[in-house]
Amino acid sequence: MTYEGVPGVVRTKEQHRETTLIVDTPRLREACLHLRDEEGFNTLVDVAAADYLGWPSGPEDVAGYIGDAGGRSVTSPGSWGLERLPEPKPKRFSVSYHLLRLGADPARVRVQVWLDEAEPVASVIDVWPTADWHEREAFDLMGIPFEGHPNLVRILMDDDWVGHPLRKDYPIGGEPVRFSGEE
């Protein structure tokens, strides 16, 4: 299946029998409306944000990688599965919208936008109402600001929580514990 008519597509990626359409961030809503109305993607299944801070840029950054930029060394044991080097990422955050054409002719596609820190993206809540909580979750845990969302508040963390826990620069086990008798 081709997605040539989708507005704003920067790149199309095929991997593991899945199609990813990387869309120019300002034209996300346009692309989503096209996919819903022209291609029949009536369901938004999931919105998944990912933080690529510290994403490996070369073979030396992947723990245990044996080989060079050309690929893994076949003579080195233990390097199973490292045929590919991590592909460099354009910006820090990705937001992936997993779409489903629910009906007689089912299909799935992933629409992806790339964002810098604090860079806003348009909300798709009026395209698929289900985006409401998914976007709130991405805002809460990853700090993605969705423009045009009528109720963009924290959903899983406390209302007064500081920081976005799923970011890579958010520490784990960072909660200070005080013991009795401590100065």
């Binding site: 991997q15 999931d46 199973w80 992936s96 799935r108």
Partner: peptide, 22 residues
């Protein structure tokens, strides 16, 4: 073990509906 670079989304029909993993 190491898993090759990439991203996948897998969905199954769980008792509650579409359970997916990205």
């Amino acid at each position: 073990y190491r898993v090759p670079e990439g991203e996948v989304y897998v969905a199954i029909e769980s008792p509650r509906g579409e359970s997916g993993c990205y």
